[in-house]
């Protein structure tokens, strides 16, 4: 058996050359922003556990210009992740239901969860302390 298998040289930027591969890489890179935002959530919990001063500095961080820009970037990638993840689900999990129904069900659950979370967040609209 050959111990020197042929390995084709590829440029690191190979995925930039075609729209299909660019789309693929953007889709995979959504996970970076999902990970970064989950780290931000974890940081928020840590600051909350450390006390009110630490919490206020966390609020200042996420409402700062940089914090907002970072989160808007995460938001764009998160939406792209949702859409592409739902689209891929019927291919990854073969169910007897038609693909369109599976994808539609995911969008329905997505809408319900989003509305429920926003309703729960409604408790925090008035700014009262209790």
């Amino acid at each position: 058996m050959s111990r020197r298998p042929f390995i084709r040289k590829m440029r690191r930027s190979w995925w930039l050359r075609r729209r299909r591969t660019l789309f693929y890489m953007m889709r995979e890179l959504t996970s970076l922003f999902i990970g970064l935002y989950s780290a931000l959530l974890a940081l928020g919990l840590v600051q909350l556990a450390r006390g009110s001063q630490a919490w206020d500095s966390f609020i200042a961080l996420i409402t700062s210009r940089g914090g907002v820009i970072f989160q808007l970037l995460c938001f764009a990638f998160a939406l792209f992740h949702s859409v592409t993840w739902f689209a891929v689900t019927p291919k990854a999990v073969p169910l007897s239901a038609p693909a369109k129904a599976v994808i539609g069900a995911h969008y329905a659950v997505w809408a319900v969860i989003s509305v429920v979370v926003l309703l729960l967040a409604g408790r925090f609209v008035d700014g009262s302390i209790q």
Partner: peptide, 14 residues
């Protein structure tokens, strides 16, 4: 993450 992260970012980031 697909189901819940977008609405969380909408709250904390917008």
């Amino acid at each position: 993450s697909a189901l819940i992260i977008p609405v969380l970012i909408a709250i904390t980031g917008v």
